[in-house]
């Protein structure tokens, strides 16, 4: 009896629901004969209110929605374990373009894309495109560092610089090499010390590492270790040396310590992908590392240092920037 009853609950429940569900017409996606709305699905690994990586992309997405009158959908907080299911759900729902906004989604996207050859996939921040229906748009991960290195090389008094990263991954190595060669191109006497914290989450370690390199004589530190940046900037502030931030403009944290920041603009990924899809000027099946030229990488405004940096330095920096855009400077090695 008991068993039968529970069974009944479900039948009744499903009965009511399916009976009342509108058959096809779903608001927001009513297809008209002339122009069929393009359907775009975006997948985030965090919430869109993260005031950072996802939020910037979300804002860009909304901008694109207006611009092209897109039918836009997104899903937040998708884990590594769930990503493939979400990709497949979007694909089997008939979405035209599916964007995975997370470097770690590169492998799953390439795997699922093979199952849906008629659907277009894009990985923003991704590093591989294995199939003709996948595109990966990525930062160069060295151009902004090169600009930071140029500025640091021009500004140092002690000829000692330091860079703090979270790991020793190939990407980190490339950043270090980029920063060092840029600084030394301006000032051959400069030495660059590289330290890493081992974590993107460790504020204390960031501060410890920064303090150590400052004791060693560094007067400008380029910090690129996630949350550890806050610790490193604090150390610089306490010891009266300068810092260059990363990812976002960190000047607000210590306006008289942070000269500038090597900024990454993740919203640009989304714009490049959607513009590329609509205007057909992005080639699917390819990997696109993009930097200063595309607006993905840049240096933040100088804010309080606007007047303290000599015009001569600003000019040299601008020339390097132009050289990067013109392709006159080649990518440094990543080991």
């Amino acid at each position: 009896m008991q068993k039968l009853s529970i069974l009944m609950i479900f039948t009744i429940l499903f009965g009511t629901f399916t009976a009342c569900t509108p058959a096809k017409a779903v608001p927001g996606q009513t297809p008209t004969e002339a122009t069929k709305q393009i359907r775009v699905g975006v997948i985030f690994s965090t919430t869109i209110k993260d005031e950072g990586y996802a939020q910037a992309a979300y804002n860009a997405l909304m901008e694109m929605k207006e611009k092209y009158n897109l039918d836009v959908s997104f899903q937040e907080n998708v884990t590594d374990a769930a990503i493939k299911d979400v990709l497949r759900s979007y694909a089997s729902d008939g979405y035209d373009l599916i964007i995975a906004h997370q470097l770690y989604f590169t492998d799953p996207v390439n795997e699922v894309a093979a199952e849906f050859p008629d659907t277009m996939f894009a990985i923003s921040g991704g590093f591989r495109a294995d199939h003709p229906n996948v595109v990966a748009v990525d930062a160069t991960n060295w151009e902004a560092s090169y600009l930071a290195g140029t500025l640091a090389g021009l500004m140092t008094k002690t000829n000692k610089l330091a860079i703090i990263t979270a790991s020793e991954s190939p990407i980190a190595k490339r950043m270090v090499n980029s920063f060092r060669s840029a600084a030394q191109a301006q000032n051959p006497n400069v030495t660059v010390k590289h330290v890493f914290t081992g974590s993107f989450e460790d504020v204390v370690k960031g501060k410890e590492m920064a303090t150590a390199v400052i004791r060693d004589g560094a007067d400008i530190i380029f910090t690129n270790c996630g949350v550890g940046n806050f610790g490193a900037i604090e150390a610089a502030q306490e010891n009266g040396v300068y810092a260059i931030g990363s990812s976002v403009d960190l000047a607000g944290k210590a306006p008289d310590t942070v000269i500038t920041s090597a900024v990454l603009s993740p919203g640009e990924y989304i714009k490049i992908i959607i513009n590329g899809y609509m205007n057909k000027d992005l080639e699917w099946g390819k990997y696109y590392p993009m930097g200063v030229k595309a607006g993905i990488e840049s240096l933040a405004p100088f804010h309080n240092f606007e007047d303290k940096i000599p015009q001569e330095v600003k000019d040299k920096l601008e020339k390097v920037r132009q050289d990067i855009i013109d392709g006159k400077i080649t990518a440094p090695p990543n080991e």
Binding site: F17, T18, C20, P22, S89
Partner: peptide, 23 residues
Amino acid sequence: INPWEAYSFLLKGSFGNRYGFGE
């Protein structure tokens, strides 16, 4: 958001199509 529409997706997503059913 229209709650009825939202709930219709709850069932459509989980049972309304072949893929959702399988998932």
